[in-house]
Design a protein around this nucleic acid. Structure first.
Lengths: 171, 171
DNA sequence: ACCCTTATTGTGAATTACTCAGAATAAGTG
DNA sequence: CACTTATTCTGAGTAATTCACAATAAGGGT
């Protein structure tokens, strides 16, 4: 198993096996829906539930949006997916989990990019919370950078003319 | 004008005059609805549209939720309010604008606090965007710290048991 | 002080993103 | 292969927000 050629290009089958193992280790059954969701998100990072549904329906036409939501929520809970909620956009999902990375979003076209923390992990986790702060135990720090991507800067688009989700997934 | 005593405690009338001036300078009419929204947000930072509506109705019972939304959106566009969108919560609004400050949210009770950037303004604005990034012109960097506040840590609440908006506004 | 223009608010319906309850299906186990 | 139960599907429901259009009122002109 997993020797020889594969039907599809990319990192398809390799990742698929890892996903199956991870699902098993979380006491989850391996279903084509779950694998399809993982594959769709992997193929198109930062995509919305709607985009994921559309992508999956190409090969699994009977899948419903509700199932997508259930699967996405569950996989996120397991840590196999990460959910991000950009302003003025439905939630988006990505397969890059576990590392502490942030996001940059173009306020003009909605493009989203991964951004590694500038100085490792620590700096964003030690703000001056001492000053009258009651929230002491910081677990995660999410940074959302907003600006304009070079494409939009070139086209001189006005900010926020296009809604983020009218544009396809990023990367 | 603005001398002597004021009817209400706090920074009521002073702020009100500033608001009127700001509204005028933005070619907006000074309406009691707008002033009421500004006052409600000022009084209770990080509150939701629903909470703002409830607060305002105490003295302006005929106001509608839709108007609140319109006013909030407009004042946010003008920069007189700032909108924050915490995960698993409706949008929240605050009067502290213009400065680059961030937020810490308690994942247990939903309490939100302002957090000043640890090293002034610059550090969060210069991530390593060079590495293959197309989003070059960063305008703002929002940092969202998530953790547990001391109260929740003491009560040993499980994270996310309570939805953020089941709790009153913070501060 | 009053009128008139038009921004603003109110009314009512619609939309988006998502969730829930229960029936049908299929993954994995013996 | 059968059986148990997680998973998915069906269909309805909800929360947050937006839209279109009618009613109202702010502020400038006279």
């Amino acid at each position: 198993m997993m020797t020889g050629t594969r039907t599809e290009g990319g990192s398809g089958a390799t990742a698929e096996h890892e996903w199956e193992q991870q699902l098993h280790s979380h006491d989850r059954r391996v279903t084509k829906q779950r694998l399809a969701v993982l594959a769709a998100v992997a193929r198109s990072q930062h995509s919305t539930a709607e985009a994921i549904t559309a992508a999956i329906r190409a090969e699994l036409p009977s899948i419903t949006v509700q199932s997508i939501y259930v699967v996405l929520a569950d996989l996120t809970r397991l840590g196999m997916l990460r959910r991000i909620e950009p302003p003025n956009s439905p939630a988006r999902y990505e397969t890059r989990t576990g590392d502490n990375h942030h996001h940059a979003i173009c306020t003009s076209c909605g493009r989203i990019e991964d951004v590694d923390c500038a100085v490792g992990h620590a700096p964003c986790l030690t703000p001056e919370l001492d000053a009258g702060a009651t929230i002491g135990h910081i677990i995660i720090a999410d940074v959302l950078y907003q600006g304009t991507c070079s494409a939009c800067a070139a086209t001189a688009n006005e900010p926020l003319t296009v809604k983020p989700d009218e544009v396809g997934p990023s990367h």
